[in-house]
Amino acid sequence: MIDILIPLLVLAAVGIFCAVLLTLAARFFSVEENETEAALRACLPGANCGACGFSGCDGYAKALANGEAEKTNLCIPGGDRTAGELAAILGKEAEDVVELVAYVACGGTCDASGRKYDYRGKPSCVAAASAFRGDRFCTFACLGYGDCTRVCPNGAISIEGGIARINPKKCVGCGLCSKTCPQHIIHLVKDTTRVVVKCSNKDKGAEVRRICKSGCIGCGKCERSCPSGAIFVKDNLAEIDYSKCTSCGLCAEVCPVHCLEEGSFLCGSRFLPE
């Protein structure tokens, strides 16, 4: 009899001890869920893109509720509407959100530039880029296997003419595509921007000309034509200082290879087919 009782008692004692310990722990170490935090979280779009600089929407809501984050205008996908709602909950004045849009800094469509070998691996830009730096003649070019289209939460990116094209009407500026692209050629700009450089090739002009019809050859015509000194050629590639750019569009007119594109991101006219 005693042979059964002792193990039973020992096991029961261990079990009861654990139960009491957990019950006490649940009581004394309980953490209250913040109501403001839940309300703030409900306003955020839930894309968990991290554009606000916090670890997803939960992180941003928590930081706002705890007062660690002051600004309510950090959520770029949510835009002005979300900023207004967040500010209303916190009793602050809404600030304007600087909305961003992404663009692909490559104009090397099938017509403009070719492929140096026949890639038959997994249809993914990361995989293609690991084999001889991609199958394009231009090592800076968009590979067009659509890693960005798959990561885009809003379906704003499509592959047209062999390269990625971003529809600015659908783009919310979360920057996920920019982080995914193995060529690092997707950039975010303010949605008030009117002119972008659609090339990333930093090779010498003659070399660029040989492999791509629409690549920047670094001729400097744009630099000379710009009335406000906002555009300059650096490392054989045109670069725009957006703090000076007045969006006059003169550079786009003089560019001999048409790698500078002018238009309005907001109305999407710059991407309309020619």
């Binding site: 193990p7 020992v10 096991l11 261990v14 654990c18 957990l22 722990a25 309980s30």
Partner: peptide, 24 residues
């Protein structure tokens, strides 16, 4: 009784550690 006691203790321990970490 080693196996069953250890399972019991480890399961309770992990839950306890999680509760403590959440607070501390």
């Amino acid at each position: 009784l080693q196996t069953i006691v250890f399972i019991l203790v480890i399961a309770a321990l992990v839950q306890f550690v999680e509760l403590v970490l959440k607070k501390v």
